[in-house]
């Protein structure tokens, strides 16, 4: 079960960062293909984002799955809202929906150079 302390820690992180990716590893050293795929999408869109390496924090690694009712990592949050895991982010990126979504949230993204 998700204890209050972990829920609060997650909530603070999610509220404090416009674009936040809970991932395995770091943007420079992703430790999982799915996390790496989302990093690639965010880099293509040149969006500023923060990340949390769940491999370094078992409480967060399990807690985030209950917090969003989503069983896997990575998980992307934009302005406090859970947007999706790797499949959804990739699908939204390919259809251009992600770029529009970010722009609607005032997170202007440059076109991929």
């Amino acid at each position: 079960m998700l204890d209050d302390t972990t829920r609060e820690r997650i909530q603070n992180e999610v509220d404090a960062n416009d674009v936040l990716l809970f991932m395995k590893g770091t943007p420079v050293f992703p430790q999982c293909g799915f996390s790496a795929a989302v990093i690639q999408v965010l880099s293509h869109l040149q969006v500023k984002f923060s990340s949390v390496n769940v491999l370094e924090d078992p409480d967060i690694r399990d807690g985030i799955k209950q917090y969003s009712d989503w069983p896997t990592i990575p998980q992307l949050y934009v302005k406090g809202e859970f947007v999706g895991g790797c499949d959804i982010i990739r699908e939204m990126y390919e259809t251009g929906e992600l770029k529009t979504f970010l722009e609607e949230k005032g997170l202007h993204s440059e076109p991929a150079a």
Binding site: P71, T72, D87
Partner: peptide, 27 residues
Amino acid sequence: TRVKQHQMVYSSLKGRMGNELHALALQ
């Protein structure tokens, strides 16, 4: 929404997603 659709599928898998089943790319 897509998130809701995928959550419905994950719940049909009765907890296996992320455990026995490491990856399930959903469409």
